[in-house]
Amino acid sequence: MAKQIYWEDIKEGAEIPSLPKVATTQMLIQWAGASGDLNPMHYEDAFAKSQGQPGVIVHGQLKRAWLVQLMTNWIGEQGFLRKLGCQFRGTDLPRGMALIGMPKDGETWQCKGTVTKKYTEDEQHLIDCDIWIENGQGVKTTPGWATAVLPSRG
């Protein structure tokens, strides 16, 4: 874990440290099992194609969890994630597997963000952020936003 950040030390426009992520077909199965989302769009190629997709696609809810991780990693154990939202604008296709437990070469996604506003409200020290996921081509497939409460040096 990174060390604790404090509200006073964060400037508007600051970048949140990027979180790199890989999605594989195996990880989608794992997410389907953990989450209970059994939509075949995420594990059966023929079904995904029948729905107009190029193949199985990464779960939106998994991408949302990546963005939550981006925020909770950064705000630290004393920060509190107050709001988070995102839109699933672009589809993302997982990497296939080369071996059991080893993905093929391919795309790596980057979860990123910037601080857009810093303010206090009801004696809480808050920041608003733009957050997003970029695919391997640098296209933002999943734009979002978040608000967090940060600890203050007082």
């Binding site: 729905q51 107009g52 709001k83």
Partner: peptide, 15 residues
């Protein structure tokens, strides 16, 4: 018939 997940928004109040 074409169902897609458009997005999600959360407000969190307590751990």
């Amino acid at each position: 018939p074409g169902i897609l997940d458009g997005g999600v928004e959360y407000d969190f109040y307590r751990i």
